[in-house]
């Protein structure tokens, strides 16, 4: 338990710094952003206390916000993901349930399940993020194109990272 806790603390900083120093600079077609830090909240253990999950999401979000000069924006979207995560997890429980003490990763549950698990949550995250940043629904289609573009970009990078971690 203790060792995995340390692993997640390290991952917290790895995802945070990778996002603000590297993935922040990756933008496709001027509108698809790579917001891969969301996957840190997604892969935390299933049995994690919900309150600490919310708090971790808030801290990671604020950390990202500090570098994006958008205080509160990423934190708000990430806290929403963290809140919805466990409900969504219990809604899509695979047959036989989750093994105790595991994480909802691609390695543990396979690609189709992980795609079903991550896509709606990332979509909600991006939807909140871009529309709150735009401050409303003017430029609706442009903002939506940012959401969809970023959704595909983020998911692709997220799956690739998951496959990389799989070999461990």
């Amino acid at each position: 338990m203790n060792r995995s806790a340390i692993r997640y603390v390290v991952l917290f900083f790895v995802y945070g710094f990778a996002q603000v120093l590297f993935f922040k600079r990756l933008v496709l077609f001027d509108r698809a952003f790579c917001l891969v830090y969301v996957s840190f909240i997604l892969i935390l253990p299933i049995s994690i206390n919900q309150l600490s999950l919310l708090l971790v999401a808030f801290l990671l979000g604020v950390g990202i916000d500090v570098f994006y000069d958008s205080l509160g924006l990423h934190a708000m979207s990430l806290v929403a993901v963290a809140y919805l995560r466990n409900y969504w997890l219990s809604a899509i429980t695979p047959q036989g349930g989750y093994d105790s003490g595991t994480s909802p990763t691609l390695a543990a549950n396979g690609f189709p399940w992980f795609a079903l698990y991550s896509a709606p949550l990332v979509f909600i995250h991006h939807l909140l993020l871009f529309f709150v940043e735009a401050g409303g629904f003017h430029n609706f289609w442009f903002t939506l194109s940012k959401v969809i573009g970023s959704l595909f970009f983020t998911l692709t990078v997220m799956f690739l990272l998951q496959y990389l971690q799989r070999q461990r």
Partner: peptide, 29 residues
């Protein structure tokens, strides 16, 4: 859990609004 979710979201929204208006010396940016 629900109430702390609400609390954190309100805190975030307050930060967003404040960040849009406020000028001065600030720590978190």
């Amino acid at each position: 859990v629900f109430f702390s979710f609400l609390g954190l979201e309100f805190l975030c929204i307050w930060l967003v609004i404040r960040n849009n208006q406020y000028q001065g010396a600030q720590f978190f940016n």
